[in-house]
Computed example of a mutant assay.
Amino acid sequence: MHKVLLLALLVSPVALAQSVSVEPNSLMRLPSSASVLQLERLDVADYGTLLIPANLSQVSVDELHLGREARITIVPGSTGLQLQVRNAQLEHGSQITSRGAPGTHEKPAKAGRDLTLRINALTAEELLIDARGGAGAQGYAGLDGANGVDPGCTWGSAGRGHNGDNGGDGLPGGAGALVRVELPQSFPAEQIKVWVDGGAGGLAGTAGKPGRGGQSKGCLVYQADGGEKGRPGLEGQPGPAGPAGSVTIQRL
């Protein structure tokens, strides 16, 4: 019977812990072995950061304390996160971040991760949540044109420089998250600040430079003229911003 209970705990999707503490100016990542985590106390000291991995879908905390400029950073993921707190004390500048990741040329910008935050009792100057989408990648830079061939004294004329390539268009930004905040009726609305803007579009790709024409050459009998330079490419277009998310405030 004891072996069966031990096996059940090892494979359980719920992880239990008494307390998690993040030291000042340090970074800690919660374990990713379970999809649900229950904590008696979570303390992130001044300027500390706690990472919540993408596979965690629910975190429950009895007592939460975020120090000055402390962060809870939620890693982008395809499923939303439920963060449930019985009693929270948030110091000046502390923040919960659920931002999307910036894009690359190989991967699109990620959306802010959807978040449902429930706090039964809250002591704070402000509640700050940043759930904006990730920024899009810059467009490819256009290649510079090749230089023209220099003339010879007994044959040929100088070659014209090749044109520069056009820059690529910037890539789209990621979408802002869907955020639902459930707070006590007594917490002032003006002290709730949630950002769910779409991520900025990628910058335009730069234009390729024109190649220079073949260089003029002074020969024994005559002067060989230089070639014309090519045309510069065109700059790409900036990428579009991602769509904004939404915010729902529910009073308890």
Rank of each mutant, 00 (worst) to 15 (best):
P232K: 11
E40M: 03
R132D: 13
K209M: 09
L39N: 06
I96E: 07
A111M: 05
G152S: 12
G168L: 01
G201T: 02
G214M: 14
V149E: 14
L30W: 13
T104V: 11
G164A: 03
R71V: 14
G148H: 11
G170S: 00
G211M: 14
A224N: 08
P31E: 10
G226A: 07
G239L: 00
L83W: 08
L50V: 09
K107C: 01
E40N: 10
G245R: 08
G230R: 06
W155Y: 03
A200G: 06
R180F: 01
D43T: 09
G168D: 06
G226L: 06
S186M: 07
P108D: 06
L234A: 06
W195K: 13
L183M: 07
M1Q: 08
L6R: 06
L9W: 01
T116Q: 14
Q223R: 15
V247R: 14
G48A: 07
G174F: 06
L203T: 09
A88I: 02
A241H: 03
K3D: 15
A54K: 12
L66I: 05
E69W: 13
S94R: 02
H92F: 14
A70F: 08
L9F: 04
V179E: 05
N147D: 15
G236D: 00
T154A: 11
P31Q: 04
T97S: 12
E235H: 02
S94Y: 01
G112S: 11
A158W: 07
Q38P: 00
A15N: 02
L16K: 09
P240V: 00
S12L: 11
S186P: 00
S186A: 15
V44E: 13
